[in-house]
Design a protein around this nucleic acid. Structure first.
Length: 520
DNA sequence: ATAGGGGTAGAC
DNA sequence: GTCTACCCCTAT
């Protein structure tokens, strides 16, 4: 920055705000609430530094923002108890929402603190289950307890041996519902399992009856049929071995004792078949030909898809070609467990609309967004052109850089989704307002660059606002007032009101924009 | 018959 | 643990 620009900035900052004369109590241009009262000749910086005078101390001092000791907050007017928070015009709704990287903060959890769990774990622990005598139910935990999952349980849980009762329940369940219906068995009230999962059941069955389990994978290769086949072919399931406890394989005798005299029912679930490229292409062709008439697609001889069910085709279409599926007006497959947003993508430079204001992208309609995301995951050949990103929105302003009027209290702020008219940040790009501030020619404010703040100020601002969106924001008044190099402890302007106020030749001039103009 | 909104189980 | 083909259920 040149010396001349330094001087200009200083001059401007020390000028009275023409739209905010100090002698007249101002009202917020948006909501009509009283604005911060300025005392005669009392600099804001002085007000800041004398916080006690304005904060008589009935309430504990607000927590300062961390990081920059030079960064001071403007004093807040007292907030009447029970004051309803004002509705913010749609243009500004959501400006006070947390920055997108707020997710880096630890989330609020209802779980017990880890320390608590550790303390619990440090108590004299019950004897390890593995060391307990192998009596039935020795390691059983009351169902309610296992469901509640105490913090102690969250600590690396010990292995729980299968009791004989559990194993019996499993085998009976498999006999009744078939191999593979693990959840059905698990949920059946006639059987009791000690906090097992369906996966646990499968694993246990694989150990107890390996041949039967294997038979589900290779139907022709084995499967003793529970009781018909020879005992323990290839495995040591002799009575001696069983009695000695060296095996958990279940013998025919044991199964009979459990009342299992029939072969285990095979899982009715069809075998999985990965979709081939040919199948995918056929499905797409069929969809384009018949639309969502899946049955018609299935029976079309040319498509050779009869081995799939109509639902299979629907499912495949909605996962393999989500865009095409959505274009037909069909809802994409909902995500069961929505992933947290990929924060890395928020500053993705590969967006189709390169602009300084694309630090965050407008969220596409859920269906479309999902479609695009799904398409990202699909390997194989590329699908038709992606649904382009809808648009971009300017980055969010941290709420402390915008004047909100009096009745706000930090503690009263709940956050709302942003609805921000992109024009709010486009105005400096207007050709009629071109000035030496306009550095990027991009038509949008480019934060500190556009402002051309002196280096010390820029450093201070960027430091104190490190919580804000990357490269996004105007500095907060609080940040600016904290910079002593300017000797401007008297009158300060909101930076947003100064931008664009210079003539191209550098003279102060033009007119100062107010919020009302800014937002009109 | 199909849509929608998932759940499940097995492969990896 | 993740992915996904297959499955299920209800509504239309």
């Amino acid at each position: 920055m040149t010396d001349r620009q330094h001087v200009l900035v200083r001059h401007l900052i020390s000028r009275p705000n023409p739209i905010e004369p100090q002698s007249v109590p101002q009202r917020h241009p948006l909501n009509g609430t009283p604005q911060l009262a300025k005392g005669h000749n009392s600099g804001l910086a002085r007000i800041h530094l004398d916080t006690d005078a304005h904060n008589p101390g009935d309430r504990p001092a607000k927590r300062r923002r961390t990081g920059d000791a030079k960064s001071l907050d403007l004093p807040k007017l007292p907030v009447r108890q029970g004051t309803k928070r004002l509705r913010i015009p749609p243009t500004l709704t959501g400006l006070h929402q947390p920055p997108p990287n707020a997710g880096l903060l630890p989330s609020i959890s209802t779980e017990q603190p880890v320390a608590l769990a550790e303390r619990a774990a440090s108590k004299p622990a019950p004897v390890a289950v593995d060391a307990t005598p192998p009596t039935a139910g020795r390691d059983s935990v009351p169902e309610s307890a296992s469901a509640a999952r105490t913090p102690t349980h969250l600590a690396k849980s010990k292995r729980k041996r299968w009791s004989d009762e559990e194993t019996a329940c499993l085998l009976k369940g498999v006999s009744r519902f078939g191999i593979g219906s693990w959840t059905k068995i698990l949920k059946c009230s006639e059987y009791g399992f000690d906090g097992r999962t369906a996966l646990d059941l499968k694993d246990r069955f694989r150990i107890c009856c390996p041949d039967d389990y294997r038979s589900t994978k290779h139907p022709r290769s084995g499967g003793r049929g529970a009781v018909e086949a020879e005992d323990g072919a290839g495995t040591d399931t002799s009575d001696a071995a069983i009695k000695s406890g060296t095996t958990v394989h279940k013998s025919r005798v044991e199964l009979r004792e459990l009342g299992i005299n029939q072969p285990f029912a095979q899982n009715k679930r069809r075998k999985r078949h990965a979709y081939s490229v040919e199948e995918d292409e056929a499905i797409l062709r069929g969809f384009r030909k018949y639309g969502n008439a899946w049955a018609a697609i299935r029976v079309d001889d040319d498509l050779r898809l009869e081995h799939r069910t109509a639902t299979d085709l629907r499912d495949r279409m909605r996962t393999r070609y989500p865009e095409e599926y959505a274009k037909a007006g069909l809802a994409p497959r909902p995500e069961v467990f929505p992933k947290p947003p990929d924060r890395g993508r928020d500053i993705d430079n590969s967006t189709t609309e390169p602009s300084p204001t694309t630090a965050s992208r407008k969220r596409a309609p859920r269906s479309i967004a999902l479609a695009a995301e799904k398409a990202d995951d699909v390997p194989q050949k590329p699908t038709s052109a992606r649904v382009p990103h809808q648009a971009t929105v300017p980055p969010l302003l941290p709420y402390d850089s915008v004047f909100w009027g009096a009745p706000f209290d930090e503690e009263d702020l709940d956050y709302e989704p942003i609805t921000l008219d992109r024009g709010i940040l486009d105005w400096p790009g207007d050709a009629s307002k071109q000035s030496f501030f306009d550095h990027s020619r991009s038509g949008a404010i480019e934060s500190l660059v556009s402002l051309r703040l002196p280096e010390p100020m820029a450093a201070s601002v960027s430091h104190s606002m490190s919580h804000a969106l990357t490269g996004s924001v105007l500095p907060s008044v609080a940040s600016i007032t904290a910079v002593p190099q300017f000797g401007m402890d008297d009158q300060l302007e909101l930076p947003s009101l100064m931008i664009g106020a210079l003539e191209p030749d550098g003279r102060a001039g033009g007119h100062f924009l107010g919020f009302d103009e800014l937002l009109s």
